[in-house]
Amino acid sequence: MRSLRREPPLNPDVLEEAAEWLMRLSDNGLSDNERAEWERWKVSSPERDRAWSRAQLLQSKLGGLPSSLAMSALDRPSNPERRAALGKLALLLAVIPAGWGSWKLVESGRWSSDYRTAVGQRRELTLADGSRITLNTDTAMDVLFDGQQRLIHLREGEILVQTAPDTASVPRPFLVITRQGRMQALGTRFTVRELGPRTQLAVLEGAVKVELAENRQTEPLIVNAGQRTDFSSQTFGALTAAGRYVGAWAQGMLMADKMRLADFVAELARYRRGFVRCDPAIADLRVSGAFPISDTQRTLNMLVQTYPVLATGHLNGYWVTLSPA
Rank of each mutant, 00 (worst) to 15 (best):
residue 131 S to Q: 06
residue 116 R to T: 12
residue 71 M to H: 15
residue 74 L to K: 13
residue 136 N to L: 06
residue 94 A to Q: 07
residue 108 S to C: 05
residue 114 D to N: 08
residue 60 S to A: 13
residue 79 N to H: 14
residue 74 L to R: 14
residue 119 V to I: 15
residue 79 N to L: 08
residue 107 E to L: 08
residue 72 S to V: 08
residue 123 R to W: 03
residue 66 P to T: 05
residue 64 G to K: 03
residue 93 L to M: 02
residue 79 N to C: 12
residue 59 Q to K: 15
residue 101 G to C: 12
residue 129 D to N: 13
residue 97 P to Y: 02
residue 128 A to C: 02
residue 66 P to A: 03
residue 80 P to F: 06
residue 110 R to L: 06
residue 86 L to S: 09
residue 127 L to K: 06
residue 74 L to Y: 14
residue 68 S to T: 14
residue 115 Y to V: 07
residue 143 V to L: 08
residue 120 G to A: 07
residue 76 R to D: 13
residue 132 R to N: 06
residue 118 A to W: 08
residue 150 R to F: 00
residue 137 T to L: 12
residue 86 L to T: 08
residue 67 S to T: 15
residue 129 D to H: 11
residue 112 S to N: 11
residue 122 R to C: 09
residue 130 G to P: 01
residue 116 R to L: 10
residue 65 L to A: 08
residue 66 P to C: 05
residue 147 G to N: 15
residue 63 G to N: 07
residue 60 S to M: 11
residue 90 A to H: 03
residue 91 L to A: 07
residue 132 R to D: 01
residue 117 T to R: 11
residue 147 G to F: 08
residue 69 L to W: 15
residue 83 R to S: 07
residue 136 N to S: 09
residue 66 P to E: 00
residue 82 R to T: 05
residue 59 Q to G: 11
residue 122 R to H: 10
residue 76 R to A: 13
residue 64 G to E: 00
residue 115 Y to W: 12
residue 75 D to P: 08
residue 63 G to W: 07
residue 107 E to W: 03
residue 131 S to W: 02
residue 77 P to W: 07
residue 118 A to E: 05
residue 118 A to L: 15
residue 71 M to E: 13
residue 148 Q to V: 01
residue 130 G to C: 01
residue 116 R to W: 04
residue 98 A to K: 10
residue 78 S to R: 15
residue 123 R to T: 06
residue 95 V to S: 12
residue 119 V to D: 00
residue 60 S to Y: 07
residue 139 T to Y: 01
residue 86 L to D: 00
residue 102 S to Y: 06
residue 83 R to M: 08
residue 81 E to Q: 13
residue 146 D to V: 01
residue 99 G to I: 01
residue 140 A to F: 05
residue 94 A to K: 10
residue 117 T to I: 15
residue 108 S to L: 05
residue 94 A to R: 11
residue 141 M to K: 03
